[in-house]
Amino acid sequence: MVPDATPMSYYGQPILKPPTWKWPIAAYLFTGGLAAGTSLVGAAARLHGDRRLAGAASAATMSAIGVSAGFLIEDLGRRSRFHHMLRVVKITSPMSVGTWIFSIFSSLAGASAVAEIGEKVGVPARVARPVTAVGQVGSALVGPALATYTAVLLADTAVPAWHEARRDLPWVFAGSATASGGAMGILLSTLAPLDPSDGFASGPRRMAVVGAALEVGADEAMHRRLRAVATGDTDKPDIGAAYTSGSPRVLAGAARAASVTGAATVALAGRRDRPRTRLLAAAGALLVLAGAALERFAIFHAGKASTTDPVYTVGPQRLRLVPPARRP
């Protein structure tokens, strides 16, 4: 039978187009957050006077930036036109705002890294040192914006699972960036062991734990908010359902598990920076990083899933509409 158009849609066809972004963008959400978090660790280390960790963090930040840029350009339909991103400063476009944030962050972090290298190859310290410090601290101050603008970018779309989570996504990404930064701090300090007497080593651990906690907490708040947006459908009662099947469900579960166990492991490693605890902390840090990455992929896939079923679009909109007043 020519299927009666189910009242919810036109032959069951989606209303929206699925986002064109592919996995590199999900990956960028993570690496962007990582760069931001790491820059904060680097800056703190710089302020703290630990130049070895600061230098490592600066290098880590730059590599995260490099990878991020690679992901961003890879996903473009016309890669040769990537510079068009800087064609206009558009405050109504989170991506335009984000591009400028990314550029400022990268140039500051870049300047700092260059200056640091410069010093090694002969640039007088009194010139190189201040640039390194100002660049690193400056970029750290821009870092948080880099970490959270991506949340606004996703939220400012018609994608139900993203837009309806617009109040929580920034906190999820902030938490995730914090955790990533902390985790990266732990890893860097295990690779380049700090002077044990210096209490700084415990900072990244605390940052990782608090960050992970914030990430998990905000994620839970997001799910609760999504579940509050009803669709009026029986088998997919609310927008939260986007997370209850397929890859979103698997990824979200894994992310939650990784973040929690990672944070616990780091916490377990305690505040003392001893060889035994250092390994434990590193393992925890890896798990925290994994959790952060999986969280981003979970949100990414759930968003796409919520565009392929018209229920998520039509349901809430219809419930929101007062039944169209019969015109006289």
């Binding site: 986002p19 064109t20 972004w21 473009l76 016309r78 036109r81 991506m95």
Partner: peptide, 9 residues
């Protein structure tokens, strides 16, 4: 247009 795809979402 460089195909960033934001408008599609």
């Amino acid at each position: 247009c460089n195909g960033c795809g934001y408008c599609v979402s």
